[in-house]
Design a protein around this nucleic acid. Structure first.
Lengths: 208, 208
DNA sequence: TTTTACCAACCGAACGTTTGTTAGTCTTGT
DNA sequence: ACAAGACTAACAAACGTTCGGTTGGTAAAA
């Protein structure tokens, strides 16, 4: 199995190497298999050495989650100097289509399957851990605000009808999350029907 | 914290009591905290006694997952002797609205928040465990088929346009899953915008 | 330039606890 | 008396964490 990197560039210091190792372990073993020993093995360190870089497991996990969620958010939220309709469709194309089918003019690299799986697992921790809950809620809110702002711009520009930006944004983010969850937990999910349906919704209910 | 029962009636035998205990532990501690010791404590048994009812932890977890997914599926899939449009809206109302706001004529009890949280956690296991992947995929497929059948009936009855039943069903199930995921991982999620948007989609893109 | 001091990085070994699991024993209802 | 069901006790393995020691390189002191 080939795993892509947690960092765009190869990790420079040991701290980043450790987070990258945690990323791979989480992918292979799941959250319950994410132990110091396994991370140390993956980096090629003794597990005692981990404690030279992180005070304890909680510290490590917190840094890890921050890194993952930052990365996720940067995939979700991008500004672009194009018309609202073009920007919105660029976002949906990148998030809901296979890369090869993506002919969008707006360049948005979609989250990889690896990142998506890890994201879904972190999200699942939010069901019983309020720290995670807060972080997840923050991401969701910023994502929705980002979409709402685009829709508001579309209304102002006369491209969109006078819809409720927040309502449409919430619907879109719910849809995107559902698609992420399916991609992460099933194999061979066809993104086409979902993509077509949301375009149908936009054409018939949002666009002028 | 008050947890609702995994079983409609109070569990009769010890096996069911154990599964109910696992349900509560999973809710409080998450999947990584789901140990034999904690389950035994919750039932009021010694942990060795668990092995009188289940051969090992894997056996217990498999039974547990089966029970949860069966219950989830029974909440998702119900037949009703009403018009396709009424049935579809009954399903969406029950899954995407608060109970008190649910004035649907079709009686479908929605999955409780507790069940939803546990479902999302089990789903997350599917990211790295192929056994879980298969079960999750099976549920999703049956759910989509159920929705597609309703839509097909709607088309035949002249209530719906000549849409692709599978495409619309996939979109609906994606949407529902996204809503579940948000409800399970965030507090105070307003279901109203999502509900309104999907009705808008149906009226403008599906209904005649 | 050589010597000294220092510090970050890593390692090996051990700690107490919790994990899943097994064996043997006692208790209870039929 | 018999079997089902619960118990106590113990096991090896894995867990997170700590301690003390060994490097290697860098910077100050001689």
């Amino acid at each position: 199995m080939v795993s892509d990197d947690l960092f765009a560039d190869p990790p420079e210091d040991t701290q980043e190497e450790i987070l990258q190792a945690a990323f791979e372990v989480l992918q292979e073993q799941g959250y319950s298999g994410l132990s110091i020993q396994r991370i140390a093995d993956k980096v090629g360190l003794q597990k005692a050495s981990i404690y030279h870089h992180y005070s304890d497991k909680d510290d490590l996990l917190l840094s890890f989650v921050d890194h993952i969620l930052d990365r996720m958010e940067s995939d979700l939220i991008r500004t672009a100097d194009v018309s609202p309709k073009t920007q919105l469709e660029g976002i949906l194309d990148s998030l809901l289509l296979d890369e090869r089918a993506n002919t969008s003019t707006v360049e948005i690299s979609p989250p990889s399957d690896d990142l998506l799986r890890v994201f879904i697992q972190i999200r699942a921790q939010a069901t019983h851990n309020s720290d995670y809950q807060d972080r997840i809620a923050a991401i969701d809110e910023r994502h929705e605000e980002h979409l709402a702002a685009i829709i508001q711009r579309g209304i102002d520009a006369g491209e969109f009808r006078d819809v409720d930006p927040n309502q449409v944004a919430t619907a879109l983010s719910t849809f995107i999350l559902g698609s992420f969850s399916q991609r992460a937990t099933r194999t061979q999910v066809s993104l086409e029907p979902v993509h077509k349906s949301i375009y149908s919704y936009l054409e018939n209910s949002v666009y002028v």
